[in-house]
Amino acid sequence: MSVDNGKGTWALVLAPTLIFLVLILVINAVLGLGEVSNAFKRFANAFLTAYTLTAGALFGAMFFYADSRNRPLAPLFGMLAATMVGAGMIFLFLSQSDLLMEASSSMQAQFFSNIVHLAVVFLALVTAAGLLVGITMAHITGNPPRRLPWPVEVEDEVEVVVEIDSEE
């Protein structure tokens, strides 16, 4: 089955994932959860740290873009501002006493803890994504389509095989 790229298609792609996620969380909640009062803090810390570090990395990537545009300063400053907004929000929320503090004793500790935590989550994500892509590609290369989309020049060989079969 092949479909055109459209909004409905992406909804179809994401729907099973979201349903599956909700199902897992519902079963999880029904069975009983332990200490998960930090869940919102974990979400907010992950969001702010991922945003700030990715924006910082993209600020670095902006230099490559600037190289191809006679080094304009406006997009560099724009991306730097986007990064600083994230860093400022982290500073602001972490300094608000207990708002985003998990178990660390200081703002500095929480900040570094967030970075290590993000690195661990990112490693898990990349490993899972790499494994899935590897398995998918292995299936695709292992099961080529019966009719290739490009012309194949093997007609002579096929004729030989037919002749051998007929002789037998």
Binding site: L25, L33, A46, A50, A55
Partner: peptide
């Protein structure tokens, strides 16, 4: 851990997407 992992996963993906959107 699974509950917290869902929070980590959603937060990380949302943060990365927001940064790409800003870019």
């Amino acid at each position: 851990q699974i509950w917290l992992a869902a929070a980590d996963l959603l937060g990380t993906i949302a943060g990365i997407l927001m940064a790409v959107l800003a870019f």
